[in-house]
Every structure is written in structure tokens, then in C-alpha cells.
Design a protein around this nucleic acid. Structure first.
Length: 313
DNA sequence: ATCCAGGATAGCT
DNA sequence: AGCTATCATGGA
């Protein structure tokens, strides 16, 4: 546990004795796309159909618009608060090259996000920039997600597979995601059909084709061990090795994943003098070095490299 | 204008 | 299995 207990406040909760929790680090380390800074140290996000705010004040960390039941059922896990990051950081800091990055992103926590939203968001992330990814995800929610009113304003949940299956490829192209529209449309269809077939499977025997579609059920994929999970995710169009690693790490609890993008490649090259390594090589190098803590190491490296615009050569 | 952004894919060898 | 051109889009 990385907090001691809760204290009810006006319309929210205060985390008492919270450790390793800095909103700026958590929401700006590139793992999520639905959180925005509303004030210094205060962020607003939409998670599983709820709008909430997180603020860091002199007196501690506050969760706004969250009651104790929401916290127990959703947000304790979402913020990964049952995990102690102290020992993780200590272990990773034994590596002098990583210590600097761990210190720079000392308040990072890896969120446990929704698999479907993470899948679609990271398909959009391919060869794209973070501000534009966020804009695209926001537009998808506005067009196809369920509206939520909060503080006199209207926000939108990320759509379910059923809701997003109403979007055509042309609709999605209108969002401004370019060539990724086809991937998103086809992947949404695959997830939606797998969900339907999963329900059907409770009442009757499936055909061979249906059994194959069932392999695309996100629940099932999430329950697979690392390697099989990584392979299964890549059966979705628009999902390659890096995006699969992100989905595993950010929404399926697979902390041994090591997503390698341009920034992590630069960071590995910068810190570990590993130039001229291909992406797959860099991935294996990282997993061998960091093992079950690969995902955490990757986030500290990514945040440091990107915020400080690490240049190699 | 050219390059780049949390890459993936089809078509090569 | 590993390499390459191509894929939209907008900002630097």
C-alpha cells in the first residue's frame, strides 16, 4: 500500500500518508490521454464513465468527485495504490544510469486503464504526437461516448465497443487520424464481435469461425501470459510490438512489458551506449536488464528522455 | 521546404 | 527473420 488511509472531504477524498504520487508525473508521462491540467498541480480526467480531479496541495493529495465506494471499486486499482513503489525505485536505482531518471520521475505511478480505450488510443498513437493523440481521443469521446455532466459542463466517457462500432472508417477519418482510421474501424469491429460471441458462447456451441473470433476478446487476451498476450494483441490491425507492449503495460497489468518508441530508443542509446540497436533488439535488451520491473524502468526513462529532450550523438 | 511525432504494414530479399 | 517505402496530418 502506498497510502495509509482515507479522509472524507467536501465532495471527495484526501489520501493520508500517500507516497510516490505526483499528479504531474502520473499524467504527463505519456501513459494516458484523457487527463488535462486545469490548474498548477490539479488535473481533470475521465475514467470509466466518471469525471474526477486530482490535486496536489501543501496539505496532501486530494481526489475530487470521488466517494469511498468509487475509490474501493475503481480508483484504488486505477491509481495502482496497492503497490509500493519505494522498493521498485530502490531496486532500479541500484543501476546508477537509471537512478537519475527514477529521481526525475519519482512520482510516477503506472495506471491500470481500460483495455478497450487503451487499445484504440495507442493505435492512434502510431507515428503521431501526444497533443494530437489527445485531441483525437477527445473527439472520439465527444462523438460516440456517453455524455456526463460535471460542475455545469458536459464531458464524455470513452465509447464502448458497441458505441464506437457505429463509427465508419470515413467518420473516423473526419476526426483527423488519417491512415489510422482503417485500423481503428477494423479493430473496433473485431473487439465488438468477440464480445458478442463471448455472450453467445454461454448459451450454445460455437462454430469454428466464431471460436476464432473469440480469440480477440480483450478479457481473454488480458488473462494470457506475457508472450501469448503480446502476440494476441498484434492480431488487431494497427497493433505492432510497441503498441502491444503499451496496452499490456497500461491496461493489463503486465509490468514486464518494455515498449520501445523513439524516445526510449534514444534514452537507451544515451544512457546505455547502445547505439545502432534495432527496435526489437532494444526491447530484448531492456527486458533482460530490467526483468519484471521493465515497465517501470521504461516509464522513468521515457519521461526523462522526453521532458528533457534527450539527444543522442 | 524538410523533418518529426509514444509505428505498423505490405512488399521486398 | 530483417530491411525499406509508404502511410495522413500539422507543427517546428
Amino acid at each position: 500500500m502506498d497510502y495509509d488511509h482515507l479522509e472524507p472531504t467536501d465532495g471527495g477524498l484526501k489520501l493520508i500518508g500517500v507516497r510516490n504520487f505526483k499528479p504531474k508525473h502520473i499524467f504527463e508521462c505519456g501513459q494516458c490521454f484523457r487527463w488535462d491540467m486545469v490548474n498548477e498541480g490539479r488535473y481533470l480526467g475521465i475514467v470509466r464513465g466518471k469525471v474526477l480531479e486530482v490535486s496536489e496541495e501543501d496539505t496532501g493529495i486530494f481526489l475530487h468527485n470521488v466517494n469511498e465506494e468509487d475509490f474501493r471499486t475503481v480508483f484504488e486499482d486505477y491509481f495502482d495504490l496497492k503497490r509500493e513503489y519505494g522498493p521498485i525505485k530502490e531496486e532500479l536505482s541500484k543501476d546508477p544510469l537509471l537512478k537519475e531518471s527514477v529521481e526525475f520521475g519519482h512520482g510516477i505511478r503506472i495506471l491500470n486503464q481500460e483495455p478497450f480505450e487503451t487499445l484504440i488510443s495507442f493505435i492512434i498513437s502510431a507515428n503521431n504526437g501526444i497533443p494530437r493523440i489527445k485531441a483525437a481521443v477527445a473527439k472520439i469521446a465527444e462523438k460516440w461516448g456517453t455524455p456526463i455532466s460535471y460542475n455545469g459542463r458536459t464531458y464524455h466517457a470513452f465509447p464502448s465497443p458497441l458505441q464506437l462500432s457505429k463509427a465508419s472508417e470515413a467518420d473516423l477519418r473526419g476526426i483527423g487520424i488519417g491512415f489510422r482510421a482503417k485500423y481503428v474501424a477494423r479493430t473496433v469491429r473485431a473487439v465488438y464481435e468477440a464480445e458478442c460471441i463471448e455472450r453467445e458462447s454461454l448459451t450454445r456451441k460455437l462454430t469454428d469461425d466464431e471460436a476464432l473470433s473469440l480469440e480477440q476478446s480483450l478479457d481473454r487476451i488480458a488473462s494470457l501470459p506475457h508472450k501469448l498476450c503480446h502476440d494476441a494483441l498484434q492480431c488487431f490491425e494497427g497493433v505492432g510490438p510497441k503498441v502491444a507492449d503499451c496496452i499490456m503495460l497500461f491496461s493489463m497489468g503486465k509490468q514486464e512489458a518494455f515498449p520501445v518508441d523513439v524516445w526510449v530508443k534514444k534514452a537507451m542509446s544515451f544512457f546505455y551506449k547502445a547505439p545502432e540497436m534495432s527496435l526489437p533488439m532494444t526491447r530484448e535488451f531492456g527486458q533482460d536488464k530490467f526483468g519484471r520491473l521493465s515497465g517501470f524502468a521504461q516509464q522513468y526513462l521515457f519521461y526523462n528522455a522526453r521532458e528533457n529532450k534527450v539527444k543522442v550523438e
